[in-house]
Design a protein around this nucleic acid. Structure first.
Lengths: 119, 119
DNA sequence: TTGACTACCTTGCATAGCGTGTTAGCGTGT
DNA sequence: ACACGCTAACACGCTATGCAAGGTAGTCAA
């Protein structure tokens, strides 16, 4: 598109953070994809489509950071619960550190822009 | 690489934030590409290559958020300084808000993971 | 049986950062 | 003079990743 920013801003901001967030949600308590989407959006992280997270979950599992098991449900098809592995726990800690470092850097840049002199 | 992520984490985290950061840097004080890279990395945002930011600057300029002018230099070729426009200033404010909202959401998710019990 | 809801997964697409390489102005050492 | 190195901007192909849309399938109620 010539005119547009194309995708919404929030989508762009999610990039590179989604996998960490999913890992965090799972780490809090084992969960399944369909539920994670709702959990995230209830915390202000809007995912329009659930299709987005399944590839991420596969990637996390392939990387040995999470682990899955099926659980039958009376409300529909079996739920595929994901549970964090030990590797996942420590990876989450690393990612969290990197995220905070970056986040602080961004804040520093942002504040420099507002607060010219930075007394 | 064990997992085969390929690109470094910090790069991924930068996605969707770089343009905002550049806008913030320019907003603080008119600057040119070569210098911005150093400014950002001095604040903890590591850009490996300067080649990354030029497309972003073009995009920002095309969007009318910044404005450029050439300034001769005794140290090399002319510098292309960028300066923020009014549209850019208000856009930066919007982006900053969206960034903080997202950032808070991520923090909420992250804290939920650390603080397991917390019903 | 149909329809609604739950739930998972696949595929094609667009965005955007990475790495590398190119062009070019300027100063210095030989 | 000329090669070299630094400053500076920019183009190009690659890849990662999120989005949208669609498909499969199980359960329950009308």
């Amino acid at each position: 598109m010539v005119t547009g920013h194309g995708v919404e801003r929030s989508s762009q901001l999610l990039k590179g953070v989604l996998d960490m967030c999913l890992l965090a949600v799972i780490s809090e308590q084992p969960s399944y994809g369909y539920e994670m989407v709702r959990k995230l959006s209830s915390r202000g992280l809007d995912l329009v489509s659930d299709g987005t997270i399944y590839p991420v979950l596969s990637r996390l599992q392939r990387g040995g950071l999470i682990d899955s098991y099926l659980e039958p449900s009376t409300e529909g098809p079996a739920r595929k619960y994901y549970r964090v592995t030990e590797a996942g726990t420590s990876r989450l800690a690393e990612w969290t550190n990197e995220w905070r470092t970056m986040s602080d850097g961004v804040e520093a840049v942002l504040e420099g822009a507002n607060d010219d002199g930075h007394s």
